[in-house]
């Protein structure tokens, strides 16, 4: 056992597990902070989930065509950020794409016709913002916001100032190990070494991010199962084409903001090379790891430091 007290607990939220680790901290104090985190995440989830029938987001989603709907401050911030992301990514990152994504969840692939219909009731361009009065309007019926792609990032970004204010310096907060905030330093005084595994060779790392007061977020179309096997998925859909991303790829982003990280990891899975370059020009203090898994148990990786 180490001499320093370490606090570790977890809870379930946002469809995954949130693990909390603090270094050099008394158990009781750790518990207090843990509760703050849990409350914050629960609160966020209750406001932003479209699965909770009376959440403010669900209320918004009920709105019909051409109604101006007033939006609360917190949701307004999130929606406008997501609108920026939508524009920055040329439509690749779109929180209104649920109808298209849903199509690919069934066992048989959708028809062209079905894709066209889904496109008609989705697309951030069908949302109008009244910036002065903080209102939005849907230009079509059936439009819905889904913050699933970015929820964990928002949660990490809102937890961070809360725990910093409590004097927590070193620790890890992880949502299912796909969205991670690394605070301060590891117990050896160095940056946290967060390793992205080679999915074909579970004991090897493709890259190790040296992380301090930053977040790592990962999105992928391929993943390891619990028994170390590999599973390919077609759940990342390009809202523009309406088609799933077919290459076996994982994108991990190191950034200060986890929200930005979630946006980038998803966008970099979808975007063509050219658009990625254009998007990269607007970024700084970001590291992007793209790993493409080839059919012959090999992989290609590319690390971009901006």
């Amino acid at each position: 056992m180490s001499e320093q007290p370490i606090f570790n607990d977890s809870f379930f939220a946002m469809g995954t597990r949130c693990d909390v680790v603090f270094l050099n901290i008394e158990q009781e104090f750790g518990e207090q902070i843990f509760h703050l985190i849990k409350n914050e995440v629960t609160h966020l989830e209750h406001r932003m989930s479209r699965f909770i029938p009376d959440s403010p987001l669900s209320e918004l989603n009920k709105a019909g065509k051409n109604e101006w709907i007033p939006v609360t401050d917190d949701l307004w911030n999130i929606l406008t950020i997501c609108f920026d992301f939508y524009q920055m990514s040329n439509g690749a990152f779109d929180i209104t794409a649920a109808p298209i994504i849903k199509l690919w969840k069934s066992n048989k692939p959708p028809t062209k016709d079905e894709i066209e219909k889904a496109k008609q009731i989705s697309g951030f361009d069908k949302v109008e913002f009244d910036f002065e009065n903080q209102k939005i309007k849907f230009k079509t019926d059936g439009l819905e916001f889904d913050l699933g792609a970015i929820g964990k990032g928002l949660a990490l970004d809102s937890i961070k100032p809360i725990i910093l204010k409590q004097g927590i310096e070193n620790g890890i907060i992880s949502f299912g190990e796909s969205s991670i905030l690394a605070l301060g330093k590891h117990s050896n005084g160095k940056n946290w070494p967060l390793g992205i595994r080679n999915m074909y060779n579970f004991n090897k790392f493709v890259h190790v991010f040296s992380t301090s007061n930053e977040t790592i977020t990962t999105s992928a179309t391929i993943l390891n199962t619990d028994d170390g096997g590999v599973k390919k998925r077609k759940h990342i859909i390009s809202p523009v084409s309406g088609l799933p991303v077919e290459v076996n790829k994982a994108v991990s982003i190191k950034s200060e903001s986890a929200t930005l990280g979630e946006f980038l990891s998803t966008s970099f899975l979808i975007l063509p090379e050219n658009d990625k370059i254009i998007l990269s020009e607007k970024l700084k203090k970001i590291e992007i790891l793209e790993v493409e898994y080839l059919d012959d148990n090999n992989f290609k990786s590319k690390l971009t430091i901006l």
Binding site: S2, Q4, V21, L23, E177, L194, F205, N224
Partner: peptide, 16 residues
């Protein structure tokens, strides 16, 4: 941490 080992921490595993 409890054993004072400072290995790389594997992330992005199956649990997510």
């Amino acid at each position: 941490i409890e054993s004072s080992i400072f290995d790389v921490i594997p992330i992005g595993g199956a649990t997510w």
